[in-house]
Amino acid sequence: MIHSLLYVPANQERFFPKAAQCGAGAVILDLEDAVPEDRKDHARSMLAQAVPAVRSPATRVYVRVNNRPDRLADDALAAAEAGADALYIPKVETAGELAVLDKLLEEHGFASGKIGFVPLIESSAGLLEASAIARAPRVIALVAGGEDLATSLGARPTAEVLRIPKLMVHYAAKAAGVLSFGLFRSTVDFRDPDGVRAAALEAREHGFDGASCIHPSIVPILNEVFAPSQEEIAWARKIVAANEVHAAQGIGAFELEGKFIDAPIVARALDLLGKAGLLDEAKEDQ
């Protein structure tokens, strides 16, 4: 599971060593907003060295491309050739855009198993197409871009304003069976770690899988909050073990430590063990 994603400008080589060592589940090498227009070609040319530089055994590498006719194809192919695990694609408004990009990559020898898509929903048009976008080729996760989305709505990027749009994108991701990244508040203020922690806790309660950040200091907070705790893992193991015993007796619902347990709760326990990387162990125990 990916609980934290760290944005790094693709043209800022000095940030690469720290990015590789900070423990992020994914590093997003940014070719878009973090790179001035006159440096974008240079940033793209650096991907061949940047992708391996920020990768580690525990860290995947995504590349945020420029979703513009004059840049998208070249950015996408450069990222694929550099070995990126996925493209972070901003301002996606239709599933058709992703189908065209999928075809381009296929034509250049990059099959769907080699590189995935993470669409960013950043407009009201994209928001209303989120369900179709989530089911487009190569999509592995969905994100609502808070700052741009609020701007497109003529609104301020507050947690209250972003809550419903982000939940709409989140529901679309879950319905399609892909990951969902995000917090209800904006993630650009890394100088408020307590606020980020509270926002991450709230997002996790809603089922979000992780969130992005722009500073390495936030990575440990996201990893801690979105990962199952030892107490939760112990609870899930207890539920699964008790269910195995009762299932052998033909009992589908039972009481455990004063609490009613039935199929949805068992499924939630198994899901939690899956997020902790312990699902195979649980299945073997059954």
Rank of each mutant, 00 (worst) to 15 (best):
K174F: 05
V65N: 00
D192A: 09
D41S: 14
D285R: 15
V188H: 15
L167Q: 14
A236F: 05
C213V: 09
V100C: 15
L6R: 02
L201E: 14
G109E: 00
L149M: 09
R185I: 14
H3K: 11
I239A: 03
V118I: 14
G146R: 13
D102F: 00
A19T: 06
V143K: 07
K91C: 00
G210I: 11
H215S: 08
G113L: 00
A76P: 00
E129D: 13
N11D: 12
V139P: 01
P36A: 04
L6T: 07
V51T: 08
D70A: 12
Q21W: 05
V169G: 10
T151P: 02
H170E: 06
L201Y: 09
E97S: 01
G96M: 13
E107L: 00
L278V: 07
E202A: 15
A84S: 02
S212P: 12
M1I: 11
A73F: 06
E32N: 10
E37G: 11
D70Y: 07
I28M: 03
L104N: 04
V8C: 05
V219R: 09
C22E: 07
A211V: 03
L273N: 00
E147F: 15
K174M: 09
L272E: 03
Q230S: 15
V245H: 11
G126S: 02
N67V: 06
L270H: 09
G83S: 01
A155G: 04
A173C: 11
A227G: 03
F184K: 03
F181P: 03
P157W: 03
H246G: 09
Y7D: 03
A10C: 00
H3T: 13
F260S: 13
R156K: 14
A78C: 01
E81N: 10
V245L: 12
N223V: 04
S131A: 14
E13Q: 12
A134N: 08
E147L: 13
G182T: 07
A199D: 14
R185M: 13
L142H: 06
I233E: 01
A24H: 00
R60L: 15
I89W: 07
D70V: 08
E13A: 11
I2R: 08
A136C: 05
D102P: 04
E205P: 04
D148P: 03
V188G: 10
T59V: 06
A76M: 01
L279A: 07
F184G: 04
L201G: 11
A234I: 01
L29K: 01
E37V: 14
A53D: 01
A276Y: 05
A99Y: 06
G177K: 05
E205C: 14
K18P: 06
C213S: 07
L272A: 08
A24L: 01
A276S: 02
G210N: 08
K18G: 13
L273I: 08
G195Y: 00
A173W: 07
G182V: 06
N11A: 11
L29N: 03
K238G: 05
A141W: 02
